[in-house]
């Protein structure tokens, strides 16, 4: 366990001391800022027809952040170590493969959540300016962040897997992006399909990320998407672990 924290701290520090990390934070802060502008415009229309968090969600920037931050954050995790060669020093240290995967994913997740902090600041500011207590509802903010964390966890685990596949960071980001966007578009694929009863339509219909996320921003926490995202995330982390162990059957 001590080794997990040692690795976790190094990985997280690597985000915070390199330019890439700050560029990602700046880009996300910029996009959240843009959606903040949208939000303020919405507030001027009285009464506000939606929850604050839902307005945030309905701006186009939300999905850009979720879909693109995952691949960009995770692309370096394994690919960079492979390219530089530090993968060899890392994997010949007395650390279990599972610890390495968990620490890298954990650090990516922590950084991803740090990146979302400006959203909280924006909601806080709104509450301060408007003096409207409805602007900041903690349960709503909590469920929104739960949704963001779950979606992020899934996309980051895909990114981990993609990064473990190759030594090229670009390729890792592209593969992760492709996986993420495909999953996102899956729900639209069956939108207009006739035949509600067909099993595959129902399976694909379960992947309506857009609906799930809207529920979270409205404060509706449904156990089904929680289980879905949690298990998919574990599945991709398992694949990552297999890839890391893969050097053993190379």
């Amino acid at each position: 366990m001590a080794q997990f924290w040692v690795l976790f701290r190094r990985e997280l520090a690597a985000y915070l001391v390199t330019l890439t990390g700050w560029v990602i934070m700046a880009a996300v802060a910029f996009l959240i800022g843009l959606s903040f502008v949208d939000l303020i415009l919405a507030v001027r229309r009285t009464p506000l027809p939606l929850h604050v968090t839902e307005v945030f969600y309905q701006t186009p920037y939300f999905w850009i952040i979720v879909l693109f931050s995952g691949p960009v954050i995770t692309m370096r995790l394994f690919a960079q170590e492979r390219a530089v060669g530090t993968y060899e020093t890392l994997m010949t240290s007395p650390v279990r493969d599972g610890t390495v995967v968990a620490a890298k994913f954990g650090a990516a997740m922590a950084f991803y959540l740090i990146v979302w902090v400006p959203l909280m600041v924006c909601v806080g500011l709104l509450r301060l300016w408007t003096g409207e207590s409805r602007a900041l509802e903690w349960p709503l903010l909590g469920s929104t962040f739960l949704g963001i964390a779950l979606l992020g966890g899934l996309f980051l685990s895909m990114g981990c897997f993609a990064s473990a596949l190759t030594r090229s960071q670009t390729l890792a980001a592209m593969v992760a992006g492709l996986l993420g966007v495909s999953l996102f578009l899956l729900s639209f694929a069956v939108d207009g399909v006739e035949g509600e009863g067909m099993w595959w339509v129902r399976v694909l219909g379960a992947f309506t990320l857009v609906d799930h996320m809207r529920d979270f921003t409205r404060g509706v926490v449904d156990l089904r998407p929680v289980v879905l995202y949690g298990s998919l995330m574990l599945f991709f982390l398992y694949l990552t672990l297999r890839m890391v162990e893969g050097r053993q059957w190379k």
Partner: peptide, 30 residues
């Protein structure tokens, strides 16, 4: 692995870390 100190070819290191910080990290990892 606990009993080996291994230095691979080309001696890969983390360029963004400081010497002392890197060695402490490695020692803790080991």
């Amino acid at each position: 692995r606990r009993r080996i100190g291994y230095m691979p070819e080309n001696n890969p290191l983390y360029p963004e870390m400081r010497v002392q910080e890197y060695l402490r990290f490695r020692a803790r990892l080991k």
